[in-house]
Amino acid sequence: MTRILGFLALAVFILLPLTQAVILSFTVTLPKPGAEPGEIALANYLAVLADPELRAAIGNSITYVLVNVALCLAVGLPAAYALARYSFIGDRHFLLLILVFRVTPPVVLSLPIFILFSHLGLVNSPLGIALVHCLFNLPVTIWILESFIRSVPREYDETVFLDGWSFPAFFFRFLIPQIAPGLGVAAFFCFIFSWVEVVFARILTVTAGKPITMAINAMFGFQTDIGPVMAMTCLSLVPGIAMIWIFRNHLARGFILRS
């Protein structure tokens, strides 16, 4: 009984603000032709999906998150392998370095990142955001992959090498299939940290390439129509909730820092 009550209390706390958003997203909030305020309708969603800028924002967000996840996995996997399988001069310093970058507040680095990226022509492009989000996603990727590689016995690697496979062949044909769930968990955490980030996303998109977060910001004005804003917010939750559902059985792996 207390168990059910506890679950209910948790559910109410988590879902209450979202319930409000969902209700508003289906409510007509400003008078429009053919609809009175207060009516329940799909008008907000239709308005959002009909707006080319908002559609582009969804595309931009998906692009930069996918690029970011791909970058983190491609760069993080070799590094995680090195840390899991070898000891070498400076390995602990490297772990300290990635920990420091993981926790450095974005607002500290936002100004020079903007100047540097405008020199490199990466402002207003999803690639710029994808790159800079590696700052906090790459460390998490390395921690997660390292723990998964560690759980594969070292003898596994040695057997493959004894069979005459080259190092790259080992990586792609043996290691990656072995730790596939780890790649999924890493991709999940990269996604949730990158999709919702706003400080870098704001400073790196001045005139174009705006992701969902900034497109929602731009919808606030002198007389904000809150219905479409909430519709857009609800739409922005869909990929994240889908990720949670897909990885529900791996969520509990979490990540543990190594130092």
Binding site: I192, T233, G240, M243, I244, L251
Partner: peptide, 16 residues
Amino acid sequence: VWGLMLCAIPLVVPWN
């Protein structure tokens, strides 16, 4: 697993 999914939902809401 349902509790974990529930708790994880706020993590995917855009910060702003």
